[in-house]
């Protein structure tokens, strides 16, 4: 049985196509999220890579903030549930999952079967989210990909503000004072690590700790977060697909449980 999971976020759209809830046939990503043509395009990309058509798919589960806009979806599942399930698939030893998405940061406690025991979301403000990082990268005049490299091995300049709006002003004045861009980038990473770390510690950190979402590709931030938490952080190479994989897996489980026929 083929199932497809689509994760429509604020900044990116991701798809995973799976067979039998065990084999990943294809994953695809587009840097365009809700309200763009990203979801449609990434769906076509993934089907092409998997060598199949939409008619071959037994069930589609949509997740992420755009899940309700996905007309083809058989299931609409919260991104926390999908990320939890995806993390368990990628690394079953995961007990604490930290996902920093475009809109918010989430910390999820998993049990040995990948079920969510507890969760927390930072939904109060933009600081500590992927969007914050994007804005800061823009201020530093680089792309989000370049940002991580820029911060690598640099001494962090203090970015005292925890508010996204004020942090921008602070970064501009540091640039004006001649602080190297790398130090500022490291300072921004540290401010996010402290914020996300604080959220995780409020819930309690149980190893193994995994990080998912696009921000997990920012190695310097992952490193700082690990130091904040006093724990090693696993980053799977499919870290950006955690939600889409979880959605494909849950679509498979739900379809099997409902006894629905395969196409």
């Amino acid at each position: 049985m083929l199932t497809l999971g689509i994760d429509i976020g604020s900044a990116t759209s991701k798809v995973a196509v799976m067979r039998g809830g065990t084999v990943v046939l294809a994953t695809a990503l587009r840097r365009a999220g809700i309200g763009s043509d990203g979801p449609g395009a990434v769906l076509r990309d993934a089907l092409r890579l998997a060598g199949c058509q939409m008619e071959d798919i037994a069930a589609v589960a949509a997740t992420g903030y755009g899940r309700n806009m996905m007309e083809e979806a058989d299931y609409r599942i919260s991104e926390l549930s999908c990320h939890g399930r995806g993390a368990h698939f990628l690394a079953p030893e995961t007990r604490t999952l930290i996902d920093v998405g475009g809109q918010d940061a989430k910390v999820i406690r998993l049990d040995g079967r990948g079920r969510i025991m507890e969760f927390m979301m930072n939904d109060k403000c933009a600081a500590g989210t992927g969007r914050f990082l994007e804005v800061m990268a823009q201020v530093l005049g680089c792309g989000i990909q370049e940002f991580s490299g820029l911060a690598e091995g640099q001494e962090a300049a203090p970015i005292s503000s925890t508010c996204a709006v004020f942090a921008e002003t602070e970064v501009i004045s540091r640039l004006a004072a001649g602080t190297p861009r790398g130090s500022i980038a490291a300072g921004i990473n540290l401010s996010i690590a402290k914020r996300v770390g604080g959220l995780a510690m409020r819930m309690g950190v149980v190893p193994a700790v995994m990080m998912s979402g696009g921000v997990a590709q920012n190695a310097s931030l992952v490193d700082m977060l690990g130091r904040e938490l006093g724990a090693d952080i696993l980053v799977a190479k499919e870290c950006q697909f955690c939600g889409a994989l979880g959605a494909a897996l849950l679509a498979w489980e739900k379809t099997r449980a409902s006894g629905r026929k395969e196409p």
């Binding site: 903030y65 599942i77 919260s78 991104e79 926390l80 549930s81 809109q103 918010d104 079920r115 969510i116 025991m117 507890e118 969760f119 979301m121 939904d123």
Partner: peptide, 19 residues
């Protein structure tokens, strides 16, 4: 009222209770 974030939390809570 950020209804989408509230929905995500409520939906996940339902999943937690159901599992």
């Amino acid at each position: 009222d950020n209804l989408e974030q509230l929905r995500t939390k409520i939906q996940t809570f339902r999943d937690v209770l159901d599992s």
